[in-house]
């Protein structure tokens, strides 16, 4: 039998807490770090840094709270699938967005025509 979702789980509350409390502490530390770094002058890298920290936090939650550390390939596959599909979505949409001719980019703030649309052209 393949080792499915393990039965080798901690059986007592202290054992469980030993598992999860360090993760929680790490998450809070990262939260503090991301808040502090958001105010630091990082020359335009702030966005990348805070998203990077968010990614680390998400991975911590997924691996330790959502039990991805257990050796179940099926669950890892399911978890990875959506990431791959997200990359399809982002990659190809940005392939369009970043390569559009400049005049075909939307331009903000252009008011709609003040005249009402003509309803009866014929």
């Amino acid at each position: 039998m393949r080792r499915g979702i393990g039965e080798e789980v901690p059986r007592t509350l202290p054992a469980i807490l030993r598992h999860v409390l360090p993760v929680w502490l790490a998450l809070l530390v990262l939260l503090g770090a991301s808040l502090a770094l958001a105010y630091a002058p990082l020359h335009g890298l702030n966005g990348a840094v805070s998203l990077g920290i968010a990614a680390v936090k998400a991975i911590l939650v997924a691996v330790f709270f959502m039990n991805l550390r257990r050796p179940d390939p099926l669950l890892r596959l399911a978890g990875a699938a959506s990431l791959i599909w997200m990359s399809f979505l982002f990659a190809l949409t940005f392939a369009d967005l970043t390569a559009r001719a400049p005049q075909t980019q939307p331009q903000a703030g252009q008011g709609r025509d003040s005249e009402p649309p003509m309803r009866q052209p014929f």
Binding site: S34, A38, Y39, A40, N46, L51, K57, A58, V61
Partner: peptide, 21 residues
């Protein structure tokens, strides 16, 4: 936990953008 992860990603997008001088 997933709802938590979603928030973890929304947090920098919605709250941390534009804070740096």
């Amino acid at each position: 936990h997933l709802v938590d992860i979603v928030w973890i990603v929304l947090y920098p997008l919605l709250y941390l953008g534009g804070r740096a001088p």
